[in-house]
Design a binder for these strands. Sequence first.
DNA 1: TTAATAGTGTCTGTAAGACAATATTGC
DNA 2: GCAATATTGTCTTACAGACACTATTAA
Lengths: 265, 265
Amino acid sequence: MSEERNREEQEFLKNYDPSRYERPSVTADVVIFTMDEDNELNVLLIKRGGHPFKDCWAIPGGFLEAGRESIDEAAARELYEETGVKAADGIELRQLITVGEPDRDPRTHVVSVVYMALVPKGLLNIKAGDDAKEARLFKIRRGYDENGGLSTYFVSSDCSITMKNLAFDHGFLVSTAIKRLQGRLSYTDDAFALLEDKSRFEIYELMKIHEAILFQKLDRSNFRKMFLRSLVDRQRVKEIGKYDAAGKPKTALYRYMERKDYDDE
Amino acid sequence: MSEERNREEQEFLKNYDPSRYERPSVTADVVIFTMDEDNELNVLLIKRGGHPFKDCWAIPGGFLEAGRESIDEAAARELYEETGVKAADGIELRQLITVGEPDRDPRTHVVSVVYMALVPKGLLNIKAGDDAKEARLFKIRRGYDENGGLSTYFVSSDCSITMKNLAFDHGFLVSTAIKRLQGRLSYTDDAFALLEDKSRFEIYELMKIHEAILFQKLDRSNFRKMFLRSLVDRQRVKEIGKYDAAGKPKTALYRYMERKDYDDE
DNA sequence: TTAATAGTGTCTGTAAGACAATATTGC
DNA sequence: GCAATATTGTCTTACAGACACTATTAA
């Protein structure tokens, strides 16, 4: 940009009044997935402490602090506040969808940028954030409703809620997240992000994760073949030992090789 | 929701002050793709009429009118203002990414929800919108820069600009859109959206579109096989005549069968 | 001993990619 | 006629899915 144009633009910016336009609020919401001890897919929900939708279950989210953080940073902050997990080091935090119907929040026009995160359960340190009474993991289950249609619902120790009972349009958002997770499974490394220890795992641990995400059993033999192809050919995974100290054969262990994400290529 | 809670929530909403939080501006931007007579992929760019980035080329976009339209509607409005194309009837208008670095726009914190649209050239009626001097189609070309690296640039009758010369972070946004378009090509019906007449086309018209998007030549025979498999098996396309009135064989014509999008399934 | 888990092998069908061989159309 | 376009076919390799068989481990 030329010197003269630069000066002209500086002048313009000095006189710019940002209050001219009616602005919506912006939030970053996060659908946080994990795997539990029963090898089931879980999602983190919070019980809302304030209006609107007080006492309803919702996905965690918070308002963007305009001028002070990017929308990605707001999502990372929200993830951290709710789980103690820092979005850096290998945690998947990926943008999912942005919703902005004028009436989706009764307070005011809220545009929500929704992310999904994949976190091993061992890293989770769940705590209710600012405007939440409680935060809790729910098992995601598939079942048939009274009409015989397939429906998704959330199960915790003492309660079970359906997708449609979540606050705002969060049922739709979680549903979208699950579909995206399933769709991406075959061509991304998403599943590895849910392993408790990515540098030390067995083939069938990974298979359990695939099964949980797809809500269906897989064939051991075929999964193994697929896995070994990815292993040798694409060097995404390395075998790190198959025998114990005495040289006796043991279940083979593998290490996931960290790499740049597909989205960036 | 119970009656009492409902009344309580109404009370809360009456006293809610939306000006409590600092809000960013929100825009809907659209990367509009089409195919030209030379079977090359084109993108619509506008020359900015005002500051900032005055006289720079950018993708069309506009501020969300908070409280009066959804973010999807804002994108559809922007598409219409720039091209006269209504987003309904079969035009692909799909959310791509949302960006929100605090300093990506020098005026104020702007969160941009970016869409991509696929429009046949015959429907385009390009006109410069409010704050644009000019709107124009650019051919998207791939070439090698001085360092031998692959780079993408935009070519029009009398000018050629590189990805990095676009206003704001729009180079990144267009680049992301192209990658997404390429990635989705094999498992979506995106390519059909660029046909001049979806209800009457030849196989190799569709192949030209695939070639333009992928920036590479394809094998006729193999493309044909792939196409015919999709045709018979998936009933996505129907043959509508291969012979002329006299019964003489002609190039086969096909009709695309409209269907719900994958994302919604 | 039984049941669950781990690992290997086989068979079938489908599909992608490379490439050869015709046929048809428009100058 | 030639060149570009359209159509069909062949061959190879890869891989997904179904399923059978063996070995090992834990209760």
